[in-house]
Design a protein around this nucleic acid. Sequence first.
DNA 1: TTTATTCTTGACTGTTTTACTTGGTTATTG
DNA 2: CAATAACCAAGTAAAACAGTCAAGAATAAA
Lengths: 158, 158
Amino acid sequence: MKLSTKGRYAVTAMMDLAIHDREGPVTLADISQTQGISLSYLEQLFAKLRKRGLVEGVRGPGGGYRLARMPHQITVAEIITAVDENVDVMRCHGDGNCQDGVRCLTHELWAELSNRLYEFLDGITLDQFVERPEIREIARRQDEEAKRMNFVFPRPAA
Amino acid sequence: MKLSTKGRYAVTAMMDLAIHDREGPVTLADISQTQGISLSYLEQLFAKLRKRGLVEGVRGPGGGYRLARMPHQITVAEIITAVDENVDVMRCHGDGNCQDGVRCLTHELWAELSNRLYEFLDGITLDQFVERPEIREIARRQDEEAKRMNFVFPRPAA
DNA sequence: TTTATTCTTGACTGTTTTACTTGGTTATTG
DNA sequence: CAATAACCAAGTAAAACAGTCAAGAATAAA
Ligand code: FES
Ligand code: FES
C-alpha cells in the first residue's frame, strides 16, 4: 500500500463528488477550482477511477462526473487502489518467493499487515464523512467561494 | 504514512537483528547477504535507525549492530517512521490550512485515517513475529544457507 | 446544424524519491 | 600494525510523482 498525494487527491475529488451528487454531474473544472487540484491531473486520475467503475462520465454541456454507486458502497481502499497501481506491500506479491524462490523472513508480517490494512481502509466509506455537519459546512463555504469567483463581474454596469 | 520498499527493508533488517540478538552484534554484511539487501543501502538505513535510538552500533572486529531495546518495545511504526522521513498523510501536516489557509474538505478524514493507521502499526512489535515457529524455521534455513556459502571451501584437501 | 461544453486520450516535462554505488574515515580487536 | 566493521559524504540511474499541453469525440443546447 502506498498513501501519497495521488491517492489523497483521488479521495478528495470523490468526496467532492459525493457531496454534490444530488445536483447532477460535477465537472472536473469545478473540482479543480474548488479543491485546488490541477485539471489535467484530475483527468488522469478520473480515467483510472472510471476504469474501476467508481465514477461515470456524462459528456456534453451540463455533463461532468457522477458516482457510479451509492456513497456507502464506495470505500477509501477502492479509491486508493484505483489510482495507485503498485499496491504491493509484499515484494513477492503474495507468492512467497522473494528470497531466491522461497519464503522470506518477513512474508508473514507483510501478509498480515497488508490484510489488516486493507480491511481497515475498506471499512471507511464515503458516506461516513459527507454526512458530518463540519464537512457540510466546509463544502458550503467552498461553494460560496466558487460562486464569488465566477460572478465577480455579473454584468458590467452599462 | 508511506509504506514502501524502504520501510520494508528496515523492518526486515530489524527482524533479522531481533532473531540473532542473543548471539551478540550482527554485522550489516551478514544482513546484506542473508536478506539480499545492498550493504551500502543498509548503512544508510541503519544511520537513521541509530539516530532514532532503535539500534546501537559496535565498532571493530566482532562488532555489528544490536537492538537498543527489547524486541517487545520496538514497534513497526517506529521503524517505518525512522527511515521514511515524510510521514505527511495530510497536506497541512495537521495545521488545517491547506485550502488557502483554511481547513480543507478531507482534513478530518486524513486526520482520522492517520491516527488509526499509526495506532495499528504501533501495536505490532518485533517480538510478535520472532517467536513464531514458522519464522524461526525460515531463520534457521537462512543461517544454514549463509554458512554453506561462507564455508564452501573449508579446507582444500591437501 | 452549428456550437459550446465536457469528457477522453496520448504524449511530454520537470522534480523528487528510490535504490544503489563509490570511496573514503574512524574506532576496536588481536 | 593489520584486519574488521561501523560511520560518513557524494554521486547516480531509473522510477514515480505531479503537472502540462494538445487534439479529438460525444452530446446537449442554441
Ligand atoms: S514478502 Fe513474500 S516471500 Fe518475501
Ligand atoms: S489536510 Fe488539513 S487542511 Fe487539508
